[in-house]
């Protein structure tokens, strides 16, 4: 019994760790898509953020400066996306695809040029990373059965970005549904003309959304390279941006469900390592690849309308042109 509890807390603990970048990227996507901008480029921003954070942290020795650099890189990418899709009224999907390749190419290219380690940044340690925080009384309560175990293993001992990600969910819900800015943001994604008629700048609102997106996804990228790992390696986002996009669709563009879906995808990721080679009753051995593909398959099924219906914000993907 006791060992089962340890097992479950360990899996849940890694679920949390694996879900954090998904949560941040998913919330990031939520802001732009709610404002009517499709963001296929999340993957690229995540990767660029991870690289910039690790590079800056390696050079300056400060994780906080690394975090800022991660956000900065994501902001630059958001800026390009904004230029292409808001100002030049280009195709947002194409722009996003371009950004993903740009990140994949640039991070490896610059990484090799700057650090000459085959695309890796130097190993980070100490203050170059965000280290685990032990919450008050965690060590004292550790010996308390069940509760102590859960508090010490699952709730305490994460880094600051993890706690930030979980706080960002209710904050996003509040901003989106309880503030004037949130109302306008949702309106510009559903009916930009109404916003324009009310005398509010569609361009400004959409840029604001893109900035919030960049900040969140930049933090998510930094988490990958300077909190979860100790440095950057090639293509370390490994499709998480796309999974976040899938989670966003799955959650029907709502913050609360987004958290749950990201945790579910994180859980699938966590168990994938554990079930390798294990034989289960009735079903036998489950191939790792089946678990890997599950988030994508589930999203396809959802998109096809077999389990509920996911309807995107109405003006999503359409550049706004004032009538002349």
């Amino acid at each position: 019994m006791e060992s089962y509890l340890v097992d479950i807390t360990l899996i849940l603990d890694s679920t949390v760790r694996l879900a954090v970048p998904l949560i941040l990227a998913c919330l990031a996507g939520l802001y732009s898509e709610r404002a009517g901008i499709v963001d296929i480029g999340l993957e690229g921003k995540l990767l660029a953020g991870a690289f910039a954070a690790a590079a800056m942290s390696a050079v300056t020795g400060s994780a906080w400066l690394g975090l800022l650099a991660g956000i900065g890189a994501a902001l630059m990418f958001s800026g390009i996306h904004g230029l292409a899709s808001i100002n030049f009224k280009g195709n947002q999907t194409i722009s996003g695809v371009a950004l993903n390749f740009l990140a994949a190419g640039l991070t490896t290219f610059l990484g090799q040029s700057w650090f000459k380690r085959g695309g890796y940044t130097p190993q980070l340690s100490g203050d170059q990373r965000f280290n685990p925080i032990t919450l008050p009384f965690a060590n004292e309560l550790r010996e308390v059965p069940i509760f102590g175990q859960i508090y010490w293993e699952l709730i305490s001992g994460h880094n600051i970005i993890t706690y930030f990600a979980f706080i960002a969910v209710p904050v996003t819900a509040w901003v989106l549904f309880r503030t004037r800015f949130g109302l306008r943001l949702r309106a510009v994604g559903e009916n930009p003309k109404a916003i324009d008629t009310a005398g509010i700048s569609v361009t400004l609102l959409r840029y604001q959304a893109l900035i919030i997106t960049a900040v969140l996804v930049g933090i998510g990228g930094a988490y990958l390279s300077i909190a979860q790992s100790a440095g950057f390696n090639n293509n370390m986002s490994a499709g998480r941006g796309y999974i976040a996009l899938a989670a966003l669709i799955f959650a029907k563009w709502r913050p609360g469900p987004a958290l749950l879906v990201c945790l579910m995808f994180g859980f699938l990721d966590a168990v994938q390592f554990r079930i390798q080679g294990q034989v289960f009753p009735i079903i036998g051995e489950v191939p790792v690849q089946a678990i890997q593909a599950l988030p994508y398959v589930l999203t396809v099924i959802l998109l096809a309308g077999f389990i509920g219906r996911a309807v995107a914000p109405k003006a999503s993907g359409i550049p706004y042109t004032k009538e002349r």
Binding site: A98, T108, F109
Partner: peptide
């Protein structure tokens, strides 16, 4: 990987910002 960067720039300038 510089080629991937070029590829991205081509998509960006001929596709999205055409």
């Amino acid at each position: 990987e510089m080629i991937v960067t070029i590829q991205a720039l081509v998509i960006l300038f001929t596709g999205a910002m055409g």
